[in-house]
Design a protein around this nucleic acid. Sequence first.
DNA 1: ACATCGGTAAAAATCGATTTGCAAATGCAT
DNA 2: ATGCATTTGCAAATCGATTTTTACCGATGT
Lengths: 341, 341
Amino acid sequence: MLITYQTMSTISKVATRAGVSRTTVSHVINHADRVSKSLRERVQAAIDELGYTPNPQAQSLRTGRTNIIAMLIPDIRNPFYPELVKTAQSTLEVVGLDMLIFNTDVPGGHSQDHGREYLRQIGRKRVDGVIVADFALHGMHSELLSLDLPAVFIGHLPNHAVDSVQLDDFGGGYLMGEYLAKRGHRRVAHVTGPSFFKEAMARAAGFEKGLADNGVPISADLRFEGSYLAPSGREAVTWLKEKHGGNLPSAMFFANYLMASGALTEFYDHGINIPQDIAIAVFDDLPQLEYVRPKLTRVGNSPTMLAKLATEMLLERLGAKVEGAPRTEVIPCALSPFDSA
Amino acid sequence: MLITYQTMSTISKVATRAGVSRTTVSHVINHADRVSKSLRERVQAAIDELGYTPNPQAQSLRTGRTNIIAMLIPDIRNPFYPELVKTAQSTLEVVGLDMLIFNTDVPGGHSQDHGREYLRQIGRKRVDGVIVADFALHGMHSELLSLDLPAVFIGHLPNHAVDSVQLDDFGGGYLMGEYLAKRGHRRVAHVTGPSFFKEAMARAAGFEKGLADNGVPISADLRFEGSYLAPSGREAVTWLKEKHGGNLPSAMFFANYLMASGALTEFYDHGINIPQDIAIAVFDDLPQLEYVRPKLTRVGNSPTMLAKLATEMLLERLGAKVEGAPRTEVIPCALSPFDSA
DNA sequence: ACATCGGTAAAAATCGATTTGCAAATGCAT
DNA sequence: ATGCATTTGCAAATCGATTTTTACCGATGT
């Protein structure tokens, strides 16, 4: 038994009403120039009277295009990603594409199996293309290729299998290392992202080079590997107190906003004042930072830029305006000094 | 010219390979009991060898179901909504439904035209159902009915046209009014949501009744109408300083998290300390509040509850487990005292 | 008078599934 | 072995579009 919630008008009904064949109705919609003006007007009238709109599933079946693109992100509750999603969506909307969002995270961490399962699902849906945010797919870059779909990767893609957009993480890190060094900091604690994560390692390497090039010694016992999530910012502060409680470094750098936000909470709870007791700097540039106090000195670039570029690259592939080898775009980072460091 | 990015196997290929008709393959997938065990295994083997998965668009065309539900929200960057989306999505995923997300906001405010346009779009997509978050649709509740789709509304739905889920906004407000009064506050500033927004008015009314019932006088010049967005939290503080700078109220209540967050920023910038100079309370219960300092005294309930209930109600309608008049569920609020008030 | 051609519109094939009848095969009881 | 009920599996119709092919018409040129 078919379920029809509403009696939609079909191309046949329109054809009957206008006294023409289905072909002609289709041409009026898709190839207006192939139909004489008078007939076109008659058909258009029938379309309007019946409130006809083509069934997208039937169109998809016939054309092989679904007008849907999939976006794979790790966690929509991490404010970085809604920003990405929002921008991508507005860009896609203009050309009539919808977006399906897949969250790969599971409570308690990122699972490869889960990400892989989503990738399989995306394959099944017959979407026209896919945008993948780095973290959503760690360790499964090759599987992306096997999807055999137009794809853009946001982040550092080791195998350069598809188009990708990334921040200049190394450069951004360097800027901040240099900045802190020039501000006179000589002992700087450093909370990195996960080490399996190429982008996080680029940030870390850039930062340390920025410090080193300006005469600040690098020491492994000032470095803490975080998860990029808020709780690990708190853990980093606990670690800092245990390890260097008697003699705090003069500054601390967090590789992303969420960890910094967790850390600020923990500093507050311990009565440690920013920047009097310790200076804080962060990698990221999100609208949320507007509302964090003290104002955080930061380096980065808006996720908006990443998303916009990624979406445009995807659209170019979809429209076959670009063919050939995968492209990699790198977006520069800018440093904004504020009150915290 | 058809575009096919990949040579997908079809039901026909599977049928040929297994030496049976397409019908049989379909039965193996959808009505396993109508096919003998031996044949079923042969077909299954062919399916596995070819890596066949049914084309969802073809299925949709035939069955009239798309297995997609739409979710209409005002702004995915407001942390309340990702929370909603995430929960709804996990619930839907279990039963194999995908979700299309539509953001109705436009830069600079909410537009009725924009929301209406989205509603029309959703009609065209032939989704199976829709979940609408209140704010996304202000002033267009009747249009929702005309979609003639299974729908659940999250928020206060004036015409009770479809199923809906709402917080006990009045009750929550009341709890907080009562709490502040009992803590001895006699002059309490109050930042409400937009007055065109029924839910915001319920919160406000409950709050004032809670105060009044406990002997606190209500005065219009202590009330400020905000937009529910962060900037209006800042504006509220500016207003407070201008109007009551010489003689601050002892407490201030914000009708949602975003406004409170904006206000905290502004208080900080003016060197006003919480709760020493003024106590702060907020309506909402979001994970983000974990990371706000000082810890905010709050009343509310998690968006997770709303989303979970809404999704389940929708699933019941989709599965025709529930028929008849629209239902309205009300979720109670709880008050959690912390450091700020 | 006939072949050719451009321009319209219709007929028919197709996309990939599900579902309805119907025929053949099988099982069971007599 | 016969008659009847059940299984089992297939052919064909269908969902709603797009696209290719064909048919037709009047105009033009030879």
